[in-house]
């Protein structure tokens, strides 16, 4: 198990984004806790096995249609 902070940057003002991230985390079985939420940056604590953290990053990079994710910086928690 790994704990990482995902700093997600982009155009993230859509109110549905946080729910979308939580819902995807539930679908793939990783824990996701929001630490900070802004219109252009969001930071989420993500916990799970390495391959699933990668999977979480893949899904969030594309995200829902009403947000644009520019990049995700992953840092050890």
């Amino acid at each position: 198990m790994l704990s990482e902070v995902f700093v997600i940057e982009g155009v993230l003002s859509a109110p549905t984004f946080e729910g979308w991230v939580r819902s995807h985390a539930d679908r793939i079985g990783v824990a996701a806790r929001f630490r900070e939420s802004g219109a252009d940056s969001v930071s989420v604590l993500v916990e799970g096995p390495p391959a699933l953290l990668d999977a979480m990053e893949m899904a969030c990079l594309l995200g829902p249609i009403d947000v644009w994710v520019e990049r995700i910086v992953r840092e050890a928690a």
């Binding site: 979308w20 391959a51 990668d54 893949m58 990079l61 594309l62 829902p64 249609i65």
Partner: peptide
């Protein structure tokens, strides 16, 4: 799909995700 909310992309799907992001942009 340009929203992967009904899928489970993994690191092996990295090219697929980049392609879809590029289409979206």
């Amino acid at each position: 799909p340009l929203d992967p909310g009904k899928e489970i992309p993994t690191r092996a799907d990295m090219t697929s995700i980049a392609y879809r992001r590029w289409l979206k942009r």
